[in-house]
């Protein structure tokens, strides 16, 4: 019964979220374009699937993942678990190794399940014409989130400036942009924006807040934020990096085969 109310509430919330989008789409469809889209009934069934799917997804997350994930983030940052006195004024960052391991694994895991990323990856695979697989892109992005969230968790522990880290990340992205293939750049930038939505944000927010409460001298209001920003910058770096490395290997292989061909020719 409780599950049923939760389902209805979530369904209602999802439909309300969609209302502004639906209003914009309908308004322009009727007021400006003045034509019916092809396969209208199929599209409508598809949209119903999207809404129903999101509702099931959110209710399931609320039941299965979020309580456990949030409780876990709190327990792992608990002074008792870390093994220090609750009133300690300084805690070595090495006391937080399990937190970093958790940040790494949960960052990867939630990104692989992120529906927005699945959507962008499917579209990219569809138009890339075999040069890129959806799964490969998702792995590269998930690895980026792992790295980003782990560094972000370290930053909360060390108390360094958030701006400094993010700016350093941007500097790396800017340098990489000059070396990466033209076709991957827009997709890499986009993958930074899509990593952080339905699944990732609630768990990361809980982790950031838990850490900021646990580390002496950190304010949850000031230091609890920022993990999401890390999770948006680092995937760009890994996707661009993946492209640069694979292009380099491809070129080397090509160069090698040209050399052996010359030898054979002689």
């Amino acid at each position: 019964m409780e599950m049923f109310t939760l389902f209805l509430d979530t369904a209602l919330a999802t439909f309300t979220d969609v209302l502004p989008i639906a209003a914009v789409l309908l308004g322009f469809q009727i007021g400006v374009l003045r034509q019916r889209p092809r396969n209208l009934s199929r599209i409508l069934v598809g949209l119903l699937y999207v809404l129903l799917g999101l509702t099931f997804f959110l209710v399931g997350l609320e039941k299965a993942l979020f309580p456990v994930g949030k409780a876990m983030a709190q327990q792992l940052t608990n002074p008792e678990f870390i093994g220090v006195a609750a009133d300690a004024t300084v805690i070595e960052w090495t006391s937080f190794l399990w937190v970093f391991a958790f940040a790494w694994m949960i960052g990867f895991a939630t990104t692989i399940a992120e529906p927005s990323l699945i959507a962008v990856a499917l579209k990219a695979e569809e138009i890339a014409g075999g040069s890129l697989t959806a799964w490969g892109l998702r792995l590269a992005v998930a690895l980026g989130v792992s790295v980003g969230v782990t560094i972000g968790a370290y930053r909360i522990v060390s108390g360094d400036s958030l701006g400094l880290y993010i700016m350093a990340g941007y500097a790396v992205v800017i340098v990489q942009t000059f070396f990466a293939s033209k076709t991957i750049i827009p997709l890499a930038y986009d993958s930074g924006g899509v990593t952080t939505s339905t699944v990732t944000v609630p768990v990361l927010a809980a982790l950031g807040l838990g850490l900021a409460v646990a580390v002496p001298g950190r304010s949850p209001l000031l230091d609890g934020f920022g993990l999401i920003a890390f999770a948006s910058v680092f995937p760009i770096i890994t996707v661009l990096g993946y492209d640069i490395v694979s292009t380099w290997f491809l070129r080397r292989k090509k160069l090698k085969s040209e050399i052996t061909e010359e030898e054979v020719g002689q």
Partner: peptide, 21 residues
Amino acid sequence: IGLVFVVVGLTLFIQGLEMGL
């Protein structure tokens, strides 16, 4: 039960992407 919901939801969502969005 929640996990079953998540799996069914994700599947419907992806199906709906290709058909609708």
